[in-house]
Design a protein around this nucleic acid. Structure first.
Lengths: 227, 227
DNA sequence: GAAAGAATGCTAAAAAGTTACATTTAATGC
DNA sequence: GCATTAAATGTAACTTTTTAGCATTCTTTC
């Protein structure tokens, strides 16, 4: 399962090495092997965790046992803020993807830390607002835009990243999951975009010959969005 | 346009009267008359605003001039955090609904305030995380749940409020907006719920004869959600 | 270069959602 | 009160999306 990540900021982008170190030292590190469950939905453990190396997948488990992944957690990412600040149980089941090392900081020491180092709480605020902004604009565009427009928008955003070199490596199924529709529907949308010459579909990849043209198309369908 | 409001926390719930006052005094107050535009999407003004009295509506204006309201801002609510912390232009056009008084705090004094009173930034963090949590769970349930389930969930949540007395006063159109689908679709969903005897539809209102029964129905369709 | 595995393509039927228009209900003005 | 108007709901035809199955194409690996 591939999930695009925006050029998301991380806590470390807002903190000095010193503050970051303070944070790390407040927790204890644990290693997980591939597939190992890190937490279960509903767990009562309160605290914030930071991924040091490896990756983890946050998912919901459906009643039928199916796994519905909802986020990929990468090194430098934090999770568990809800449990710490809102006193909620864990909302997702998280498991390791490959060998992974995570530092867990219990609620009380973490809150104490914030008192001592206000920089950290400001960094978290900025980070949370950023996520918030993304969520809001996604929710918004889902209401306004056709599936075709949403697919185009997602591709246009992904292609911004330099490393993509004009070709997005992902399966249609991955796009479908990210947007929240079926693979068939995405396939049709891609077809239409391809017929307009905006993209070229391939096996496990999608090529965008002209990023500017795709961007222009998105803007035309969604004049409101990029602001 | 009616929009249900969860028992949303406000900044004032997390601050002492003193801190709150400090905040107020950092800004200047302005009065708006019904329908008056408070800000335009795209405006460059950076800062946080707090509604003192009255109400305001945050909306997107479609290219055809249609108004797509997306939030109701009530006394004690703040907005403009994105502009202040993420340095983004205004994402929504906001206009007054009835006579409204708002205090605007410019970016710099606001940030200075946070330095001086860390309590405020922690309060904002908690608040933002709360919104975040709601957005995430909404996004999540939209993927997993049928429209019928979402409508039932919304009604069940609303009926929790004591003042509703088992009858929710709202138009199908309001429900439709909150959920993000057409009124007709909501109508059909309500129909099905009515045929199950869970609700009784009326002109501008929906009666829930047995809140427990409705709750049970929601839990059965959505065992994951309430956590 | 065959075989197996992975991803896309296609089809058809059913379900869900939208748009436009008709009907019902409530409020208003005489 | 009763007609009139505005507001809210209901209906029907159409479009989009889902589901599910199988066929095809591409890639890897042996």
């Amino acid at each position: 399962m591939k999930v695009f990540r925006k050029k998301n900021k991380k806590l470390s982008d807002f903190l000095t090495a010193g503050d970051l170190n303070t944070l790390f030292e407040a927790g204890h590190e644990q290693a997980y092997s591939d597939g190992e469950i890190i937490q279960q939905r509903g767990d009562k453990w309160r605290g914030v965790s930071i991924v040091k190396s490896g990756e983890a997948i946050a998912a919901n488990i459906g009643r039928d046992g199916s796994i519905l992944p909802s986020a990929l957690i990468k090194p430098g990412d934090t999770y568990g803020e809800f449990t710490t600040f809102l006193d909620l149980p864990r909302t997702h089941t998280i498991f390791a993807k490959g060998p992974t090392r995570i530092r867990h900081i219990k609620r009380k020491p973490f809150l104490a830390l914030l008192e001592a180092a206000p920089k950290i709480s400001q960094a978290m605020l900025t980070l949370t607002l950023e996520r918030n902004y993304e969520l809001v604009s996604n929710l918004d565009s889902n209401r306004r835009l056709s599936l075709r427009a949403r697919v185009a928008r997602l591709l246009a955003a992904e292609i911004e990243k330099d490393e993509t070199q004009g070709t997005v490596i992902c399966r249609q199924e991955d796009l479908a999951f990210m947007i929240g529709v079926s693979r068939v529907a995405v396939g049709k949308a891609l077809d239409k975009l391809a017929k307009k010459g905006l993209i070229e579909t391939g096996y496990g990849k999608i090529h965008v010959p002209d990023a500017n043209e795709l961007r222009a198309y998105v803007r035309q369908l969604d004049p409101v969005s990029p602001l």
